[in-house]
């Protein structure tokens, strides 16, 4: 356990500097989004109210009151999140490959550690998860600050202040912040399964190199296929025999089996087949 924690901390610190950069860039991009959208709206309001002699009430009726929705849907906001997603996706691969880089590949030392090699696998997965959840938390904190900025720029009569929940419910943010705790666990549970399957696929490549790419991809496809099996069989073979609840339970079980499979195969590969 202690070894595992040390390894997690090690993996965490290795990415920490880049992570901080990512956090700062996100903050800048999102503040930019809030300021741009809020000021743009106020400029429009001024133009219409003073230029076209429209009353405030009529303006709000015709142009809709300002909500964070506009900010959330703006380009800068969207790309800030896309950036984080892409960087973390790349890091899912890089977290393994960096150990093989350089002259004295570091993986050699890692594999020699007097601990189960599976700990390495778990530590890397945990580090990825911490980074993901850290960014989710950052988004929530940023929402609070951004709403404050918005309140400074847009006067109350032009605004409708809704709780954060309303912005995360109806667009791409619902993927990052699902509506309820159960959904959160389900979504990110699926994410964990996906990360582990990817890790195992990477290990296939690391064990068998060129041939391993084919193994890895086939393994990934088999995992996805297995996960979707209840749905596919129900749709194409059984002609929608099962009720949604039953399918849901089967999907959860299928997901757990895929996860166990990924860890088990990953363990085997690390133990017996890994090449340095």
């Amino acid at each position: 356990m202690n070894r595992y924690l040390k390894l997690v901390n090690f993996e965490f610190n290795r990415f920490f500097k880049l992570y901080i950069v990512l956090v700062i860039v996100t903050i800048i991009m999102q503040f930019f989004a809030v300021i741009l959208e809020s000021r743009g709206y106020m400029r429009e309001a001024k133009n219409v109210i003073y230029g076209d002699m429209m009353s405030k009430a009529d303006f709000i009726k015709n142009y809709e009151a300002f909500t964070m929705q506009r900010v959330v849907q703006s380009n800068w906001f969207y790309w800030s999140i896309a950036l984080c997603v892409v960087v973390l996706l790349i890091y899912v691969f890089f977290i393994w490959y960096r150990d093989w880089l350089g002259k004295n590949s570091f993986i050699y030392r890692l594999l020699m550690l007097p601990t189960a090699r599976l700990n390495l696998y778990f530590a890397k997965a945990t580090a990825i998860l911490i980074f993901v959840f850290g960014l989710v938390a950052l988004q929530l904190l940023l929402f609070l600050i951004e709403m404050q900025i918005m309140k400074w720029i847009v006067p109350a009569e032009f605004r409708v202040d809704l709780p954060i929940k309303e912005y995360t419910d109806f667009n791409y943010l619902s993927v990052i912040l699902p509506g309820s705790l159960i959904d959160f666990l389900l979504f990110y549970g699926m994410g964990i399964v996906a990360v582990c399957v990817t890790f195992t696929a990477i290990l296939f490549e690391r064990c068998y190199r060129l041939k391993g790419i084919i193994f890895g991809i086939s393994y990934g496809l088999v995992s996805v296929g297995f996960f979707l099996m209840p749905l596919l069989i129900d749709t194409f073979v059984l002609n929608y025999y099962f009720f949604p609840v039953e399918l849901f339970v089967m999907e959860v079980i299928a997901g757990i089996i895929v996860l166990i499979g990924a860890v088990w195969i990953g363990n085997y590969l690390l133990k017996y087949k890994i090449r340095v």
Binding site: L5, V8, N9, F12, N13, F16, I130, F133, G134, V136, A137, L140, L141, P163, I164, K165, L177, S180, L181, F184
Partner: peptide
């Protein structure tokens, strides 16, 4: 471990409050 602990605490508190309060 301070860095990782700080990140973990912030994460748990923020995400936790978000979901507990919204329920």
């Amino acid at each position: 471990y301070w860095k990782i602990i700080v990140v973990l605490i912030i994460t748990v508190i923020t995400v936790g409050t978000y979901y507990i309060r919204s329920s």
